[in-house]
Nucleic acid binder design. Structure first.
Length: 592
RNA sequence: GGUCCCGUGGUGCAGCGGCCUAGCAUACGUCCCUGUCAAGGACGAGAUCGCCGGUUCGAAUCCGGUCGGGACCGCCA
């Protein structure tokens, strides 16, 4: 070893001992005949000091050193003189009096500060990630991720789960997200896909009798990123045999409750977690991943406008529509622009308009007040419980459109107005999802996962009569309005699985071609099984309170999937393309 | 595919038609300095304001395009 101790270990107990440290120059304070440097490694910071008269060679070396040079320091740990101790540092009681300095490596002036917490352009950070990782914040996020994953592994292993690596070169499937694809050399013109998740493989492991499986699995999707999603992410992939819904939920809840208790900065608001059905989530919050840290629940005004003279409401109600609303506290004086912005948000989910009612004193001000009777205006106040100075936002439409429009408004306003109680995390389960849902062209698709089983045998039968009413054994883990993961009890018989595919218009032949391996496996004694797959990146984001997934990944990519560190993607060698039987048709439109 | 925001010495920001010969902080270089810890002090170097074009007597500043980054919509079983 090039060192006897780390830079975090220097304590009063070591006083008098000779130590050798190695690390980076964090800062340098040169007083002429007396020079200090703070030497930094992953473990901490230790002050090193040299006097010109006591040790000229070491003093000269410290004088020459610059930030981010790599030094090896031999010296004696000694208590700092009284009055010069630094209570801000864990190692502030002592310092190392340098006897010998060896420069292990010099450094160019770093492209940004390692020793300050200033914001730096992300492109620079990722390009020089090796410098960025030396910064405390970056290092602590990576540390947190490591510790969480370590905790998860121990938890799972203790409960009898086997960690199994599944293959990352699988069969491409046109459903779901766009696949990232890898060309095959032996089969020119054919491609592997990188897994969007190991879903089929983990189910096959259950058929293989492994009983309890987990994996920290890399998942890939070639879709446009957002702040909380990107090309690749990791999920804790879990699958169990001979279990029911409640078993998996109990395991997930125990794991995540202990993770939050151990790693979160804030306590969980409620343990055990609330379990909210999809129907209830949509009715109360207009979204299937509600943020329970604030109220502003959706209300129903349908009865108030039952016989309204206002044509828009009336016609909606005549067509079995509804009028739903939220109360925005204290926003009666919203500006025209604010209202326009809110209306635009509501329209994203299909609302045709947004009615506003501002409660001012005895009156209710609204752009549609002239169409409404005094009873209706009074009814708004009564039905919503809104107070003076509040703003009531209402959407008249089908139940789904009204609910979802107000759901996004609620989410937006919760954030914009800072309504959420940020002193806690609020975890909950959402379950009893629909099994299938309508596609825009009138067909059916799976609501979550094609392998998800029906809640009861009756729900499977409902596919024949009222598919939209069929519920599934899907459950989602939601924290602070963010979906951290989901899972389900799967179809373990071929018949059930094929029935669901049929509903989505996937013929037996198509299903066999796309999911043949799993379907065949179901023919050979597949046990009842189910699992869950929470995302690691979003978990760490939530624990750390960061809004950006790139911060919790060691080597992030940009919004276009570019890797500034490796300068990837890059053109492939023509010889390699030849071997793969590939010819590039599209000229690269962006030369780097 | 679309909407919005950003791009100014190494870094972070200011300036938003002429007072800009581009300001501040920090980093960087040289020198001074014996107890600092964001050390202090003095001096110095460092930018054709992302790029291209246009408007104007005059553009970092206004307009168009383009490139790069970010947020969002679409998309994401």
């Amino acid at each position: 070893m090039l060192r006897t101790h780390t830079c975090g270990e220097a304590r009063a107990a070591l006083a008098g001992k000779e130590v050798t440290l190695a690390g980076w120059v964090h800062t340098r304070r040169d007083h002429g005949e007396l020079t200090f440097i703070d030497l930094r490694d992953r473990y901490g910071i230790t002050q090193v000091v040299a006097h010109a008269k006591e040790n000229p060679a070491a003093h000269r070396a410290l004088g020459k050193a610059r930030n981010e040079w790599v030094l090896r320091v031999r010296g004696t740990v000694r208590p700092r003189p009284e009055g010069t101790k630094n209570p801000k540092l864990p190692t502030g009681e002592v310092e190392v009096a340098a006897a010998e300095i060896e420069v292990l490596n010099e450094s160019k002036t770093p492209p940004f500060y390692v020793n300050e917490e200033t914001e730096v352009d992300e492109n620079l950070r990722w390009k020089y990630r090796y410098v960025d990782l030396r910064r405390e914040r970056s290092r602590e996020l990576i540390r947190l991720r490591h510790e969480v994953v370590d905790f998860i592994r121990n938890f799972m292993v203790e409960r009898g789960f086997w960690e199994v690596e599944t293959t990352d070169l699988i069969r491409s499937d046109p459903t779901g997200a766009r696949d990232l694809v890898v060309p095959s050399r032996y089969y020119p013109g054919k491609f592997w896909a990188l897994p969007q998740s190991p879903q089929q493989l983990k189910q096959i492991l259950m058929v293989g009798g492994l009983d309890r499986y987990f994996q920290i699995a890399r998942c890939f999707r070639d879709e446009d990123p957002r702040a909380d999603r990107t090309l690749e992410h990791s999920q804790l992939d879990i699958e169990m045999s001979f279990v029911e819904k409640t078993d998996v939920m109990a395991l997930g809840e125990e794991l995540y409750t202990s993770i939050f208790q151990k790693f979160a900065r804030k306590p969980l608001k409620q343990v055990p977690w609330p379990r909210v059905t999809f129907e209830e989530a949509m009715r109360r919050f207009g979204i299937d991943r509600p943020d329970l840290r604030f109220g502003m629940e959706l209300l129903d005004l349908t009865d108030v406008f039952r016989s309204s003279g206002f044509k828009v409401f009336r016609e909606t109600l005549d067509q079995k529509g509804v009028v739903r609303a939220i109360v925005v506290p204290g926003k009666a004086k919203a500006t025209r622009k604010e209202i326009d912005d809110l209306t635009a948000i509501a329209k994203r989910k299909g609302a045709k308009g947004l009615a506003q009612f501002a409660l001012a004193g005895e009156t209710v001000e609204s752009q549609v007040a002239k169409f409404l009777s005094p009873e209706e205006l009074a009814g708004i106040r009564r039905a919503t419980g809104a107070k003076d100075g509040d703003l009531v936002l209402a959407v008249a439409d089908t139940y789904d459109v009204a609910s979802e429009s107000l759901g996004v408004l609620r989410e937006h306003l919760g954030q914009a107005l800072g309504l959420a109680d940020t002193s806690t995390h609020y975890a909950l389960w959402v379950h009893e999802f629909p099994l299938v849902q309508r596609t825009p062209d009138g067909g059916w698709t799976f609501a979550h996962n094609p392998f998800c089983g029906p809640l009861t045998p009756h729900d499977l039968e409902l596919l024949d009569t009222a598919p939209e009413k069929a519920r599934s054994k899907q459950y989602d883990l939601v924290v602070d309005g963010r979906e951290l993961g989901g899972g389900s009890i799967r179809n373990h018989t071929r018949a059930a699985q094929e029935r669901i595919f049929a509903q989505m218009g996937v013929s037996k032949g198509d299903a066999q071609e796309r999911f043949g391996a799993l379907l065949d496996a179901l023919d050979y004694g597949a046990p009842p099984h189910g699992g869950i797959a929470p995302g690691i990146d979003r978990l760490v984001m939530t624990l750390a309170g960061t809004e950006n997934i790139r911060e919790v990944q060691a080597f992030p990519k940009t919004q276009t999937g570019y890797d500034p560190l490796l300068d990837a993607p890059a053109a492939a060698d023509p010889k390699l393309l030849e071997e793969l039987g590939l010819r590039v048709v599209a000229k690269p439109d962006k030369e780097r």
